[in-house]
Every structure is written in structure tokens, then in C-alpha cells.
Design a protein around this nucleic acid. Structure first.
Lengths: 120, 120
DNA sequence: CACGAACGTTTACCGATGTAATCGATAGGC
DNA sequence: GCCTATCGATTACATCGGTAAACGTTCGTG
């Protein structure tokens, strides 16, 4: 099942550090998003139903851990974008940014280094 | 206003060739998506309300043309992904794909050529 | 001139999502 | 042992998005 935008912010918190209690997740995301704790609770529950989070009891509360790896989520989202907009290929995306003049010198240096690094 | 996934397929048709009549847009997208013409009509109307399409009368029908450039749409979607998942930077995205072993030799060659090409 | 076909417009409906309050159980303090 | 604060679970509700049918208007044809 798909992780929604709001839900992904909860996942990010748990990916950064886990396991986390609901209260800790709230502390991480509620403020920045202007959410109440109730909202975070709802998101946590939806993620449990989607098997994106696991809960283990810890006394009176639960501790939550991710069941999907961030790399998998990131990979699916990225591949989805490439497929929808760039014919599934990475080079046209890079090309798009360069044509837009959206690459800093640092970006270019970084890319250069990367690409030299992974020759076969 | 945001262009949804289904709506974007209509936009793609109009970006490929325009202006197009509703019937022509349907011919392009309804079949592949398993949509009826009614569905395409709805999407066209929502895009008109969002000012993503413009319509000019042509006898009994309308002809539609895009009001947003594909490059703008692609740019916003891409930047959004980078911001949400890669700290707004391009290199980590490329790095992600390479680490996943998701780059073919051709991809690498293409990227190499691109990056050599756009030195400042 | 009336009727029907072809358009666009309006309305419908359901599931997902964002956002949150309320309910119910339970554990700790008095 | 009982009450209350604290959790998680349940319920709520509005909007959006996907999908489509019904409606209304107009133009061409018989």
C-alpha cells in the first residue's frame, strides 16, 4: 500500500531514529507541521494498518519501528518519477536540471566525482 | 493548483500535440488507461478550472492547448521529489540509483557525456 | 421544422487523505 | 481498592481524486 505525503513525515522521523514512542514521534513532527498529537496518532495507526510500521509494547505504551526501508520508499518514489516524466531514465532528469540552469558548481563537481567513481 | 496523476496524462497528450479536440485527447489517452470518454471530459474540465488548459471554440467543439509548459510541470515535480527525499540536491539522487545498481552502462555513458558537456 | 446526434456542463459517488475529537482501557498515585 | 491521567483505538468529517452517468444545448439532416 502507498504511503501518503503526511504519513511519510512520520516515517521520516522513525527512519531517523527508532524505535520511537508515539509521543516522541509527535515531538519530531507535530510542531513543524502544525499538527496536534491526535493527528500524529491517526497517521501512526494508518501506517500500522499498511504494515509500514511495527509496534512492540513497552509497558503502557508502544514503540514503533519501520517495516519498510527508507531506501525502498525512496527508490520507488524516484523510479516512479523517472517513469512518469523521463521515460524511466536518469540522464534526461539530469539534463533537465542542467538546461534549467539549476545546477550549482558544487552540484556539478559532486556529480562529476560520482560518475568517475562508478565506472565499471 | 496541482495537476493530479490522472490529469497529467491528459496534459501529456496536449503537450505532445496541440491544439487538440476532446475527442482527439480521448483517442490518445482513454484506451491506454481504460477510461471512458466521460472520464476524459471530466479531467479536461478540471484542467480548465485549474487554468492548466485553454479552450478556443472551433465550430461546435473546442480545441484545447496547454497553459502550463511541460518543462514547468516536470521541473516542479522533480524539484519536489528532490526536496522531499534528497535534501533538495541532485547528486544524492544519482548516488541512490548507482548504489542500487540501477544504472546501465549506457546510463553511465550518457551521464558522463552530459556532465563533461556542461562545465561552467 | 422537428428530431436526434454530438458536444460540453453538471452532478454523482466512492475511496483516500488530512486533520482532529472522542471513547475506552489501564496503570499509578492516594 | 478507587479515581484520574495517559495511552491507543474508534469515529468524524471535509476535501480531493478517480471514474462515470445524466443533463442540456446546439447544429445538421430528413
Amino acid at each position: 500500500m502507498k504511503i501518503s505525503a503526511a504519513e511519510s513525515l512520520v516515517m521520516e522521523a522513525v527512519w531517523r531514529k527508532n524505535p520511537l514512542a508515539a509521543e516522541e514521534i509527535s515531538a519530531e513532527v507535530a510542531g513543524p507541521q502544525g499538527w496536534t498529537e491526535a493527528t500524529v496518532k491517526t497517521l501512526i495507526n494508518r501506517l500500522l494498518k499498511k504494515h509500514a510500521l511495527a509496534a512492540t509494547r513497552d509497558g503502557r505504551r508502544y514503540l514503533y519501528r519501520p517495516l519498510v526501508a527508507r531506501a525502498d520508499y525512496v527508490g520507488a518514489e524516484s523510479q516512479g518519477l523517472l517513469d512518469r516524466l523521463f521515460d524511466g531514465r536518469l540522464a534526461p532528469l539530469v539534463s533537465h536540471f542542467s538546461e534549467k540552469g539549476a545546477l550549482t558548481a558544487e552540484d556539478i563537481a559532486e556529480l562529476k566525482k560520482l560518475i568517475e567513481g562508478f565506472e565499471p
